[in-house]
Computed example of a mutant assay.
Amino acid sequence: MKTFTRALLALSIFAAAGNVLAEGETTTPVKAGSGTINFTGTINNDACSVEGAGTNKTISVNMGEVSIKDMGTATAPKGSGTLSAENFEMKINCNAGTKVAMLFEPNSGKGSGLVTGTKVLKVIDGLGAAKNIGIALLDSNGALIDLSSSSTAKIESNLQDSNASLKFSAAYVTTGSDPKTAVAGRGDATLPFTLQYE
């Protein structure tokens, strides 16, 4: 009987100690794993945006498949009147009354650069890339946009309402002194732009 009483007394002491710990919670919890949440992003105060530019502010222009014989040159993109060009439009949404300019920056870090001594965009070098070929950027009137300087690679617009559409076309051109030196292949290029506003 004494053993039973001692056992009952011991259980009572453990139960009382458990209640004290539960009320005060002085024990340290055991970790079952840990980690970190990283948040990234940028906050801006842009007065303008470009429709269809996607999350990376990228616009894709599919130039299709073009024959070298149908191309003009870096100085005469329209060639003999046959122009194989891809038309595209950039819709800009701004605060009403905003004066905005679009500045093309072919030589910035992400740009593919210019063909040396020309006003046209260079195609990206690499395995299977076309040689002695560039891309001419043309305005809405079909005139060549000179990408060789920041003053001539700038398109200005004064928005009377909140939207404007800038129309362009792009054409592959031969860039060598002799068009026969052009070599067929991939014709990819990258042309960064910046919207500047007052």
Rank of each mutant, 00 (worst) to 15 (best):
D146Y: 05
N95M: 11
P192W: 08
N38D: 07
R6A: 11
G134D: 00
K99M: 09
L195R: 02
S84W: 11
P179Q: 14
T58D: 08
S157Y: 11
A7P: 06
T55R: 10
E25Q: 15
A143V: 11
C48K: 04
G33L: 00
T27F: 15
S165L: 10
N87Y: 08
T42F: 04
A130Y: 08
L191E: 05
S12H: 03
I13N: 06
T152K: 13
T5S: 11
K131C: 07
V61W: 06
G113V: 02
S112Y: 01
S84M: 14
T118N: 01
I92N: 02
A182M: 02
I155Q: 02
T73N: 08
T116S: 09
C94N: 03
G72F: 10
L9C: 06
G81N: 07
A129S: 14
L147Y: 00
L21C: 10
N38M: 12
S162F: 08
A53T: 07
S150P: 06
A184G: 12
A22E: 12
G54M: 00
L8I: 14
N107R: 05
T55N: 11
T3I: 15
G24I: 14
A129Q: 07
L8Y: 09
G111F: 06
S84Y: 12
G97H: 08
G72T: 08
A15M: 09
K57C: 06
F104W: 11
D178L: 12
S165C: 07
N132F: 13
I135P: 04
F4V: 15
N163A: 12
A85I: 10
A182R: 06
F168S: 08
F14L: 15
I155H: 03
G117R: 01
T3N: 12
T27K: 12
S12Q: 11
K2T: 14
I13Q: 02
